[in-house]
Write a protein that binds this DNA or RNA. Structure first.
Length: 564
RNA sequence: UACCCCGUGGUGUAACGGUAACACAGGAGAUUUUGGAUCUCUUAUUCAAGGUUCGAAUCCUUGCGGGGUAGCCA
């Protein structure tokens, strides 16, 4: 064994696993699995599980591994498209299942054999009741269930019936195979759960080979055991399934492994929804532009938004792992995104709401280039030349005709520094007939170049970014904001309310910005910080070479907010 | 109103019977050619009541609050 770290503090799962390893259980091996059903796209909540399961396999390397297993036991909901996107997302997050790629459908034959074994042991029976009858006889949360009239069929009869179910003799819903446990159990999952159902449906991998399919509750523990999984980690809603999980592990003979299941709280994030059903609704109703819309909490969405794998991993580490049904602030995610991007994103000047500035004492027709660092956080990123001339654009937010208290930027008669250029003084405000400001006429001071602060003059408090008008590129920017206006849209909407009423109408604003010409070479899928504005990501789908389109990943923190 | 799980600053977590701490958020300052970043300081916490103990966030009891569970979904 090679590790281990100073061991900061372990969450309850890791503590448990550490104890297992210390006790030499499973020969000191830790084998986990990430088991998505390929029926949709992965979201940030799945990232928590991925970071846990794959993270564990890294922490216990080399005595460890994490399987990627597709839980494809319901052919009516699953598609290869989802299989592919899930694999892409896991890889993008920075994890690798190596050769350990599995499908529950690979075990259909073995699973069938185990079911026959249960029948022979008198632990499973074929039930002819209708779905309605089964539901009614299951009882309620407060009342016990009642036995099916078919509960005591002989093993031989059950075996025959089950074989005929497989052979396709019956229609959907005509018969099921049930585990024979306890119809009076306070745990509904133990009231003779259905373990096989008839589905004449085409499976994305097994085709038409099967017309009976195992249920999750049956397939999952046995798949875990077949793969030698040691720790089966899932979210809290499966807590009540644990006794069934253990029942199966204990009831089936000849299993190569003895995994156990533990549960942790799923991730909830403010200002978004996480359930597949609700995300699907957003896509289907055209409320967002697809699963990879940068406003979506899907992995493909946040990837396209410009969030980084490292940021997401750091976030998943920061949120911890407990059984408390917590609500994490979106804030925290954004913090980690900024932290990562601050170190790596190249800086560029972009003016989102341009006002023209004319430097009246700057020679007409002259263009010079000023040298600016690509990333002050990392000298190795080098420098670039930014054109500067008589006509510039600055951002409308950086000028106030009648400034509020505390405003440090340009005002009539006032002075600001143009970053890495020189200071300018606003001499005149030009307006159109409607009174809109269309131009600022300013003078520049050559003595203030290179950050020089002339003595004897009032201190220039503001430094603003700018672009040279003639050389500026017109670039499309997609300014994304929170998808919802309230922290918990589903909670607020209530049981029968509609969460879409809380959709943020301003979650996407598209603008054409004036950006320094170097931006034209931006590669799709690259990160930038538009100085003083935010982090932006060249959209990998819609950008073209020489014509990038940017998604706003996250705004910069703004220490100055105009109070109204 | 059955059973199971969970309650620590605003939020997320740590403290494993022995000084309640960390991060985010908030506030103040320093610094800065980004009102960013960085650095310093700071506000604010054990659901309640009993009990056990020299000592309880931690163990016990009760109460209160939150979440989950009645698919031939996963």
């Amino acid at each position: 064994m090679s590790e281990t770290a100073p061991a900061a503090s372990l969450d309850f799962i890791r503590e448990m696993i550490a104890a297992d390893v210390a006790a030499g259980r499973n020969g000191g091996q830790v084998i986990t699995r990430f088991p998505p059903e390929p029926n949709g796209y992965l979201h940030i909540g799945h990232a928590k599980s991925i970071c846990l399961n794959f993270g564990l396999s890294q922490e216990y390397a080399p005595h460890s591994r994490c399987h990627l297993r597709f839980d494809d036991t319901n052919p009516t909901k699953e598609e290869v498209e989802y299989v592919e996107s899930i694999m892409e997302d896991v890889k993008w997050l920075g994890f690798d299942w190596g050769t350990h790629l599995f499908y529950a459908s690979d075990y259909f034959e073995k699973l069938y054999g185990f079911a026959v074994q249960l029948i022979e042991k008198g632990l499973a029976y074929v039930d002819d009741q209708t779905p309605e009858q089964i539901r009614e006889s299951r009882g309620t949360l407060t009342a016990p269930g009642t036995a099916s009239p078919y509960r005591d069929r002989s093993a031989a009869e059950n075996k025959d019936l089950f074989a005929r179910m497989r052979a396709g003799e019956f229609k959907n819903g005509e018969k099921v195979l049930r585990a024979k446990i306890d119809m009076a159990s306070p745990n509904m999952n133990l009231r003779d759960p259905v373990i096989y159902r008839i589905m004449h449906a085409h499976h994305h991998r097994t085709g038409d080979a099967w017309c009976i399919y195992p249920m999750y509750d049956y397939a999952h523990p046995l798949s875990d055991a077949l793969e030698g999984i040691t720790h089966s980690l899932c979210t809290l809603e499966f807590e009540h399934h644990r006794p069934l999980y253990e029942w199966l592990i204990n009831s089936v003979d000849g299993l190569p492994g003895a995994p156990y299941q533990r549960e942790f709280a799923r991730l909830n994030l403010t200002y978004t929804v996480m359930s597949k059903r609700k995300l699907l609704r957003l896509v289907k109703d055209g409320l967002v532009h697809g699963w990879d819309d940068p406003r979506m909490p899907t992995i493909s969405g946040i990837r396209r938004r410009g969030y980084t794998p490292a940021a997401i991993r750091a976030f998943c580490k920061a949120i911890g792992l407990t059984k408390y049904p917590s609500l994490t602030e979106l804030n925290l995610l954004e913090h980690h995104v900024r932290e990562d991007l601050n170190k790596h994103a190249l800086r560029v000047y972009a003016v989102l709401k341009p006002i023209k500035v004319v430097l009246t004492n700057y020679p007409e027709g002259q263009v010079e280039h000023v040298e600016v660092p690509n990333n002050p956080e990392n000298e190795a990123d080098g420098k670039r030349q930014v054109p500067l001339s008589r006509e510039l654009y600055i951002d409308a937010d950086d000028f106030m005709e009648t400034p509020v208290q505390g405003f440090h930027r340009l005002v009539p008669g006032g002075e600001v520094r143009l970053k890495y250029a020189f200071c300018i003084i606003c001499q005149e405000v030009i307006k159109d007939a409607q009174g809109n400001i269309i131009e600022l006429r300013c003078t520049y001071d050559d003595a203030t170049r290179h950050g020089v602060k002339p003595v004897g003059r009032p201190k220039v408090k503001g430094t603003i970014h700018w672009v040279s008008a003639a050389q500026a590129a017109d670039i499309e920017l997609r300014l994304y904001d929170k998808l919802f206006t309230v922290e918990q849209p589903d909670e607020q909407a209530g049981e029968d309310g509609d969460f879409t009423q809380f959709l943020n109408p301003g979650s996407l604003e598209t603008v054409i910005a004036k950006i320094e010409p170097s931006i034209l070479t931006a590669k799709p899928g690259s990160h930038y910080q538009f100085e003083r504005v935010g982090y932006f990501f060249a959209d990998p789908k819609d950008s073209q070479l020489g014509k990038p389109i940017f998604n706003r990943t996250v705004q910069l923190k703004d220490g100055f907010v105009v109070k109204k």
